[in-house]
């Protein structure tokens, strides 16, 4: 075998080499969308920071300049002004690629609106405070605050630390059920959660799930579970004839799978950096 250049992770019997993993993981970032005129926007921003000095402290901030009519110099000025206010920008959205270079935050795209971030509501200026809000699409709901007084007090009391960003808790994880065989050449991708297949997964097809993969049939293709960074995800199948299995970025090809489990009903999980297989009855 001449596979030493790229050894599959956790293959026993080979010299220990560090495993480099590349995985996708999504984090929540604060989106800052300056609006023209900028001097007024910065005025608002300054007053927000004055009220709650720690608000941007430990936050990942993405700067969205798509709504602005600026050039490269304008962007440099903008970044400098934000820097003066101790706001560190980790990525820029909506800028021209050619503007950015070494020393600039990287260009990001394809972000997804998650939820609103509670901004400390100013007591006096609640109605025109929309410009200070980080997420552009939240104007409708955040402003109807009838208890401005108490809101302000609460806010200022908390301001020594960054306010927690609340993500709506997903009480149930979504799952996808497929009631026919996955044919060669087909790809099922479901990063949100578990995938259940009632039927076989053919050679030359793949199933990619954010959570676990359950196959009530033979697994002859590829199954990649926990693709969004869930090491606890597992793969279950009635008959193991897989071309490749992976959990949380660690994979094993058919060649590296123990032949004893071939054709058996098994479950596959991760223990540390090792892919484990055991029969299920």
């Amino acid at each position: 075998m001449t596979q030493t250049a790229t050894p599959p992770a956790a293959q026993p019997g080979q010299a220990k080499r560090p495993t480099i993993r590349f995985r996708g993981r999504s984090f929540l970032a604060l989106l800052l969308s300056p609006e023209a005129p900028l001097d007024i926007w910065f005025e608002e921003l300054t007053s927000l920071i004055d009220r709650s000095p720690g608000f941007f402290g430990a936050r990942a901030v993405i700067l969205d300049v798509s709504g602005l009519d600026i050039d490269r110099q304008g962007l440099i000025d903008l970044l400098a002004q934000l820097g003066e206010r101790r706001i560190q920008v980790m990525g820029i959205e909506g800028a021209k690629e050619t503007w950015l270079g070494p020393g600039f935050p990287p260009l990001v795209r394809g972000g997804k609106q998650v939820n609103e971030v509670d901004v400390p509501v100013p007591a006096a200026k609640a109605d025109d405070g929309s410009a200070t809000q980080p997420a552009p699409a939240q104007n409708a709901s955040g402003q109807g605050n009838s208890e401005q007084g108490t809101g302000t007090q609460d806010a200022s009391a908390q301001q020594s630390q960054p306010a927690p960003i609340s993500i709506p808790a997903e009480t149930t994880r979504p799952s996808l059920i497929i009631e026919q065989p996955v044919r060669s050449g087909q790809s099922v991708t479901f990063p949100q959660g578990d995938v259940t297949i009632i039927g076989s997964v053919a050679s030359g097809s793949e199933v990619i799930a954010g959570g676990s993969i359950h196959i009530y049939g033979a697994l002859r293709g590829r199954a990649l579970a926990g693709c969004a960074g869930h090491a606890s995800a597992r793969i279950f199948c009635n008959k193991l004839e897989a071309e490749l299995v992976a959990i949380d970025g660690l994979y094993k090809t058919a060649e590296a799978l123990d032949d004893n489990y071939r054709g058996q009903a098994v479950q596959i999980w991760l223990e540390g950096d090792a892919i484990k297989i055991a029969p299920i009855n």
Binding site: Q180, R183, S184, G185, Q186, A202, S203, G204
Partner: peptide, 16 residues
Amino acid sequence: EVSSVRDSDRIIGVLD
């Protein structure tokens, strides 16, 4: 034989 079977599997997916 295996290659024919796999290609048939693919074409069944296309038929669907």
